[in-house]
Design a protein around this nucleic acid. Structure first.
Lengths: 210, 210
DNA sequence: GTCTATATACGGATAGAC
DNA sequence: GTCTATCCGTATATAGAC
């Protein structure tokens, strides 16, 4: 934003246009099926310009993910306050996020992570360090249970995203946020703070071994 | 299996070897990233043979999905009996299926459906006509609620599969089936037969419009 | 800073020999 | 039935002119 000395990194508008087009394309078709040519065409620039700005397709992808994917203090704000309302607040905020530019980046990362290992690692690390860890810090209860509780909640939320934004199966794909909050909120609430009878009292330790 | 008159369709063993290799490859990397050359190499045959047997890459994919993906009367058997145990029985059977050849085909279809529209349609139709519809026929309660109830249950199960077999996020990825049944069973139970307060009593109809 | 031309590589599909 | 050789399209990436 602020002017700096040294070499101009090219027209900022052009750069931003490319990033937006790339984000949309990656979200739509995933990494592999997205061609730099199509991104360039969609942004109204020459394909060579994309290389000029970002160097490679991988770097373009990472740049497109960078800005929007930053939960920052959103998660803590959701978790603070009445512990009994965490589930519904989380689902509501979650649905809101997925309808923003961050959601576009999220779909892109998800679509890519399913087929590409380095993207899967990126998604895992994002979930663990940016989301689950923050949740863990703000929840009461046995510390040792939190990883499983967190990933159970994540599994439900991930399934919701898959149904609504990726596979698009009705009627979940078109349900109102209120209906989904009422339906899924209690599930997330139970996973995070509720009574999970029979899950943790396994003889050899339910979490280990498969 | 049984001998038939007419043209021999080639060595059955070779054909089956190709299908198995293809299923594994598609499950591992999805449709696009899987090359016919690699499938052939993995099956120990010439790439041209694959074309000879299956005609095209698409037809190879469909052939690899055909056999294993057939819920048949598995679903009805799960749903029959005590309605209060449906959730746990469903999750238990579900986890069992995903560790079989059918599971390999399932992962392949899922990985592909995320990026390729015709595969997404295939997955949707499979879920609706082969799974959800059968569930609908064997459940009590308001008929009009069943589509949403079914797709909510599907969202949780899909999320579980994503976590365990695709993204592989711990500790869900390595949790024991028992622990997952205890954790997720009640969720599915509630979606299918439980009290979903606030979900269906929406003024304009919670299912429509978004 | 922007675009043309091209190097390089890969994968699906086919023709045809054996 | 099986394999060799190859056509053809497409995509990333780079070199270099303007």
């Amino acid at each position: 934003m602020t002017r700096r000395t040294g070499r101009r990194p090219g027209n900022p508008d052009t750069r931003e246009a490319i990033l937006t087009a790339a984000r949309a394309a990656f979200a739509d078709r995933g990494f592999d099926a997205t061609t730099i040519r199509s991104v360039a065409a969609s942004a109204g620039v020459d394909p060579a310009l994309v290389h000029h700005y970002f160097g490679s397709k991988d770097k373009l992808f990472l740049a497109a993910m960078q800005a929007p994917l930053d939960p920052g203090e959103l998660v803590p704000r959701i978790l603070a306050g009445d512990p009994e309302g965490v589930g519904e607040r989380l689902v509501r905020a979650f649905l809101g996020v997925w309808d923003s530019p961050a959601g576009t980046a999220g779909v892109a990362l998800l679509r890519t992570a399913v087929t590409t290992e380095w993207a899967a690692r990126l998604l895992r690390e994002f979930l663990v360090t940016q989301v689950l860890r923050r949740i863990q810090e703000h929840l009461p209860g046995d510390r040792r249970q939190l990883p499983l509780r967190g990933s159970l909640a994540a599994s439900q939320l991930l399934g919701l995203v898959m149904m609504r934004y990726v596979i698009r199966l009705e009627p979940v794909a078109s349900a109102t946020p209120q209906a989904l909050v009422a339906a899924v909120g209690p599930t997330v609430q139970r996973y995070l703070t509720g009574d999970l009878a029979g899950v943790f009292d396994d003889p050899a330790g339910a979490v280990a071994h498969r």
